[in-house]
């Protein structure tokens, strides 16, 4: 009897553990399955958007409206953040350069930092928040209120009208916004330099661009097109595939910002690696 007692206690524990493991495994398997289906769904959506981009009957008027919406309406936010970006970077960098006696390098260092990395990434992240969430929420609410279905039954391809126009507008407008942010960042830097010094704008600009080469500029511009495409595609995908309830609009907007921001950082990492290999 004494030897049997532990066996009776242990066997159910082992069974419980195996049941728990199999349940956990099932849950993880289902989650992994859903993740893979989501990834496949995203790439199918992307490939359909690309296919529709090159089809006939491009919705030019809607494309221009989206350019205005994404580009022009983002100018105030980008102006403020761009200028502050340059100003803060200058104020933070100055003491470090001062300790090496290299304050004269401040304009070119800030300009290179802004143009190569900080300007594109910060602007893209701000656009992921503003533009990505806007597209996600707009398309999500159109889905919930059956506007996308209405478009489909009135013989209009919603993918072409809603998605292609937004993705293309984001792809073209975000590089322009980045260039604008870079320019304002350099202006902000000039103000930052003049807080503790007296440098004319012409001298500042000539110093800033004295060490500039095409390789500093070109990869940074090229990657912003990818940032724009990512923000447009993710926002459109999250909105277009939103659920039917009103809460899905918020979910679509939120997940668009999260995923677009993450992908911007990943694309940036890849772009930096490629640039590094090419130089």
């Amino acid at each position: 009897m004494k030897t049997k007692l532990p066996v009776i206690k242990i066997v159910p524990k082992i069974r419980d553990a195996s049941i728990k493991i199999s349940e956990k495994t099932m849950v993880k398997t289902v989650e992994a399955n859903e993740f893979l289906i989501g990834v496949a769904d995203f790439f199918l959506f992307f490939s359909q958007a690309v296919r529709e981009t090159f089809s006939r009957n491009f919705e030019f008027k809607e494309f221009l409206r989206q350019c205005h919406q994404i580009g022009f309406k983002s100018l105030p936010l980008i102006s403020i953040t761009g200028a502050i970006m340059g100003l803060v970077l200058t104020i933070q960098t100055r003491p470090v350069l001062d300790s090496f006696g290299a304050v004269s390098l401040l304009p070119s260092m800030v300009a290179i930092s802004l143009v190569r990395e900080i300007g594109p990434v910060i602007t893209a992240l701000i656009c992921a928040g503003k533009v990505g969430s806007g597209i996600g929420a707009e398309l999500g609410s159109m889905k919930v209120t059956e506007q996308i279905d209405a478009m489909e039954v009135s013989s209009t391809n919603p993918m072409r009208f809603l998605v292609v126009t937004r993705v293309l507008a984001a792809t073209l407008m975000i590089p322009l916004l980045v260039l604008y942010a870079d320019a304002l960042g350099i202006m902000g830097s000039w103000i930052g330099v003049n807080i503790k010094g007296d440098v004319s704008f012409v001298l500042f600009i000539s110093q800033a661009f004295s060490v500039f080469e095409l390789i500093d500029f070109l990869p940074a511009v090229v990657k912003t097109f990818f940032f724009g495409a990512v923000i447009g595609v993710v926002g459109s995908y999250k909105g277009y595939t939103a659920g039917r309830g009103t809460e899905s609009v918020g979910v679509a907007a939120n997940s668009a910002v999260v995923l677009a921001s993450l992908l911007v950082i990943i694309v940036d990492m890849i772009a930096v690696q490629i640039t590094d290999m090419l130089i």
Binding site: S141, M142, Q147, S155
Partner: peptide, 20 residues
Amino acid sequence: LSNLRMKIGFLFQSGALYDS
């Protein structure tokens, strides 16, 4: 299907007017 849909009118429950 697109040609066929041109001959069909669909009034949605929510109206589905384009908000913008």
